[in-house]
């Protein structure tokens, strides 16, 4: 499936500031099943942003503004061909040893509640176990954009019994690691099932990947209870949200920052 993404972020400061810096992880990379036809991340006045590869081999675009400003407009856009691989990741850059992903992280720290959720999982086959875990989380943690915020941990979200895709992913990762599966956080885009509709929340999406012996890395999206299909574009991975966050910024000055985000993910081109 050919998908076109246009992701606009407008940063606004309530009083003018002299310096701001943003690290933006919004660039998909090619692997089997994900072909990037075109992609760029640009700021309205600065043009295409410089970038570098972080330790996980994610592309990080950097916006540096050293003049007085109250606003910046960043647009990530491009076209990606995606084919269904049943959620299996092949040919993606893997700089870190698989065992690294058994490591705990602040957002996915284990707790008794997470442990007992993990231990309730059924199935002898690893694939079935992880599917069961995904289904359990989907059942126990309902979708609610008001229940959690961007700083919420897996433990807190599970206790609240509600959250957004980020929370579903964190809970999944914490439990899967407790079961012995190396796991990681994925951020990316999801094509809405209703064509033509502009989404602002789940179009920017997050899910998890776990490593299964003899199979490899497999994606699980507990928020939607599926393994990623040809409707998923993968842009960054890390231990948890903090490392794969689409935007992270700092600025100097006594200003409040507000973000206005619009994301459009649509089917396009030859395959339409």
């Amino acid at each position: 499936m050919r998908i076109r993404v246009t992701h606009k972020t407008i940063y606004r400061y309530d009083t003018p500031i002299d310096f701001s810096f943003q690290a933006i992880r919004l660039t998909p990379q090619p692997f089997i099943g994900q072909r990037v036809l075109s992609w760029r991340v640009r700021e309205e006045d600065e043009g295409v942003l410089p970038n570098y590869m972080d330790g996980f081999q994610n592309v990080v675009s950097l916006l540096t503004l050293l003049r007085e400003h109250e606003e910046a407009q960043v647009t990530a856009e491009g076209v990606v061909d995606v084919s269904d691989q049943k959620g299996i990741i092949n040919g993606a850059p893997e700089p870190l040893p698989i065992l690294y992903f058994l490591r705990q992280s602040p957002r996915t720290a284990i707790s008794d509640a997470l442990k007992s959720l993990a231990s309730a999982v059924d199935g002898t086959d690893p694939v079935l176990q992880l599917h069961d875990l995904m289904n359990c989380i989907h059942k126990q943690v309902r979708y609610d954009t008001q229940a959690t915020h961007v700083q919420t941990t897996a433990t807190q979200a599970l206790e609240a019994g509600a959250g957004v895709c980020q929370d579903h992913a964190h809970i999944f990762i914490a439990c899967a690691r407790a079961l012995g599966f190396p796991s990681r956080y994925v951020s990316g885009y999801l094509l809405s099932s209703e064509p033509g509709r502009e989404e602002t929340f789940e179009a920017s999406h997050a899910w998890a990947e776990s490593y299964i012996e003899r199979v490899g890395w497999v994606g699980f999206d507990p928020a939607n209870q599926v393994c990623p299909t040809d409707q998923y574009i993968r842009t960054a991975v890390a231990l948890d949200y903090d490392g794969a966050a689409p935007v992270r910024g700092v600025w100097r000055g006594k200003a409040e920052e507000s973000l206005a985000v619009t994301v459009s993910v649509q089917q396009t081109g030859a395959d339409q």
Partner: peptide, 14 residues
């Protein structure tokens, strides 16, 4: 090594 607080993934392959 891999689960050590002092291991810094940001340095991988640099």
């Amino acid at each position: 090594v891999l689960h050590n607080e002092s291991f810094c993934a940001e340095m991988q392959n640099l």
